[in-house]
């Protein structure tokens, strides 16, 4: 790691101030991606602003058909939350399978969505459920939030304070992990509810998570695995690597979609 200055502000206002005053400062939530990046010297921030001291960023509330999760809420907290398990079991289950136990104990939803790793799980849930991202300045619809691989609609210094999810009627997530890293090589989130019928794909897209319009249209007509028959995924916008070619990823999107649908019931 290069040298940097560590800050641990106690409020969103203080964090914003620290980040605004220094374009090379980086916010850190769980640090599960940032710290490995720093260790490999792939980033050289002047300062790291640790958001873990900000109490208002933590916690889960369920009301009025919405699950709202504070940006600094860990994956473990989401996975084990009785309220999330009841309201959106697919979301709790997704959180329970992000990384490993140690990652889940530190990694947060805010960090995950702000980073938009193309192999992360949460972006699939946000798009699949039609979530809303809350920042210190505004709210952003998930559909407008993810703008490309490792790229989001966040402005420099803007902090994800929470994500709210409308409670769906049915939802499930199926993941095919990369055999080595165990990140999502293909993850498909299907949902039916207040945001309509949605199919979101993570892990596979060259530009990050995306919605699968052809599958959405088919499922909107008929919510059944049979509706997915014959639907293929164009390969030109997919990732290919040593573990999975574009062709294989395209195929797995179909398989995971069917499995998610079966799980969603």
């Amino acid at each position: 790691m290069y040298e940097f200055t560590y800050h641990r502000p106690g409020s969103i206002a203080d964090a914003v101030k620290l980040l605004a005053g220094d374009p090379d400062a980086r916010p850190m939530s769980g640090g599960m991606t940032l710290i490995p990046t720093l260790k490999q010297r792939l980033a050289r921030p002047t300062s790291v602003v640790d958001l873990s001291g900000i109490a208002e960023l933590k916690g889960i509330t369920v009301s009025g058909g919405t699950v709202k999760i504070g940006g600094m809420t860990t994956h473990a907290a989401v996975a084990t939350s009785a309220e999330v398990q009841k309201a959106i079991p697919a979301l709790a289950k997704l959180a329970a399978h992000i990384g490993d136990n140690q990652v889940r104990n530190r990694g947060t939803i805010g960090g995950s969505v702000a980073n938009h790793d193309p192999a992360a799980d949460y972006p699939g849930a946000l798009l699949g459920l039609g979530a809303t991202v809350h920042t210190d300045k505004r709210t952003i619809a998930a559909d407008d939030f993810f703008t490309g691989m490792f790229s989001t609609a966040l402005n420099p210094g803007e902090i994800v304070t929470a994500v709210s999810f409308p409670v769906p009627e049915k939802a499930a997530y199926a993941k095919f992990p990369n055999p080595a890293s165990r990140y999502a090589m293909v993850g498909v989130f299907v949902a039916k509810g207040p945001s309509g019928v949605r199919v979101a794909v993570t892990g596979a897209g060259a530009d990050g998570a995306f919605r699968h319009k052809a599958m959405e249209e088919a499922l909107a007509t008929k919510w059944s695995a049979s509706a997915l028959e014959g639907i293929t995924t164009p390969q030109d916008t997919l990732n290919g690597d040593i573990h999975a070619s574009k062709e294989y990823r395209a195929h797995l999107i179909g398989v995971m979609a069917r499995r998610a649908l079966a799980a969603a019931g």
Binding site: P179, A180, S181, I242
Partner: peptide
Amino acid sequence: VYDEDGQLISGSMMDYTMPR
């Protein structure tokens, strides 16, 4: 895995599949 130029593609545990 090396690429055709000789860069090591499976150069970390993120890409080299260690049995779990």
